[in-house]
Simulated scan of single mutants.
Amino acid sequence: MTSSTETLPVIDIGSLRRDSRDLARIGAALDRACCEFGFFYITGHGISPALSARLMTLARKFFDSPLEQKMTIAMAHGGRAWRGYFPVDGELTSGRPDRKEGIYFGTELGPDDPRVRAGVPLHGTNLYPALPGFRDTLLAYIDEVTAVGQLLLSGIAAGLGLEQDYFLERYTSDPTVLFRIFNYPPSTANADENELGVGEHTDYGLLTLLQQDAVAGLQIWHHDRWMPAPPVPDSFVCNVGDMLERLTAGRYVSALHRVRNVSTRDRTSMPLFLDPSFDAVLEPIKILAPDPTAGERRRHGRRWDGTDLATVSGTYGDYLLNKVSKVFPQLRAKVL
């Protein structure tokens, strides 16, 4: 069943999760959402509400702890894996500090992994809060959400007229999986439009799956205005990343978005980025017919950083490191 909120499509993928015979219908709904908005909600995803609630509760316990305690797992201790905690104003988006704190995680790799031994950036071991059950809960959650992301990519492939395993076989059999937990403090007194939890940006990879708490704040740039993406119970907000826009030659839009927490409460969100393998080279899918509306939608979408995705070359890892090094310039010399 597909319905809509005032803003973004809501797509129930429950039948796809149970039976692939519904693939064509859900694929068509995903295709429309990715073309028009670059964003959509999913329900019927099968992620245990208890697992999500447990991780959200543990995250809030961590963010409520003293700063000195949180800094024991600061990103400066994460080395080339680029994992760990950063405080409010510790991350730059759109060239200015974000009003948020957060923890960076990724696929857990041991010291004997060839990529870790070679010192490949963004590969390695996570730094975990010293809270009972945090590590096991987090890793279980990442596994479950990654599986949902792979299922969504099979639906997106169907919507594009491709084989169901198109993305899995070419880009996500060994994906780059990055996971973040963010906490956005309430707005300061007399805050204006320029006080942002995270500045306007696009995501870098294929697909983002975001679980947000009950506090609103996410906004999407659509048709020359900021459109709210309020919380929908038991849902994920999903969006197209730069590499999926590149693969589809602009048919899908990697939409600009930002966060403004104008409430009096903290806002917690948990995005998982399901991205191509680090060494993947991405080229537009040749069988796709040109989309005559792509140029007009891109004009409305506008690129936040001036990048023309049609000119991007090299591996996904090259693209990702270039972006992340600008977000954390203080770590650049240590990691790259």
Rank of each mutant, 00 (worst) to 15 (best):
V116Q: 03
P185N: 13
G102N: 05
V335K: 04
I13R: 02
S52T: 13
T137S: 15
D22T: 13
A310M: 09
L207S: 02
R180F: 13
F328K: 08
V253T: 15
S52Y: 10
I156N: 02
F63L: 01
L139C: 04
S48I: 04
T311H: 12
R21S: 12
L168P: 03
V240L: 12
L139H: 07
D174G: 11
C238Y: 00
V10C: 10
S254W: 00
G44T: 06
M75N: 05
R298K: 12
G124W: 03
S263A: 12
L331S: 02
T146E: 14
D165T: 07
E163L: 09
E245Q: 10
E169M: 03
P9E: 14
L272S: 05
R60E: 15
A157R: 01
E36I: 07
K61R: 15
V177E: 09
T264N: 09
H257C: 08
S263T: 15
A130I: 02
A280Y: 01
G133K: 02
E200W: 08
G149S: 02
E68G: 15
T311V: 05
Q69H: 13
A33R: 11
G161K: 00
P9A: 14
I181G: 04
L272P: 04
V215G: 05
P66D: 15
G159D: 10
A59Q: 07
G90W: 01
E296A: 14
C34D: 06
P185V: 02
H45E: 14
R83S: 07
E68M: 15
P87S: 01
G124P: 05
Y141S: 12
I142V: 14
I156P: 09
L30T: 05
L138W: 05
E195D: 12
L67I: 05
N126A: 06
A214M: 06
L122D: 05
P87A: 03
V177D: 14
L23S: 04
V335R: 05
F39C: 09
S313V: 12
D279S: 14
G44S: 07
A280T: 02
C238S: 01
A157D: 00
D279E: 13
S263L: 11
T315N: 09
L16G: 04
L127A: 09
P290Q: 13
I47F: 07
G106W: 06
L247P: 01
D242P: 03
D242A: 06
T2N: 09
H223E: 14
A28I: 03
L309F: 15
I11P: 06
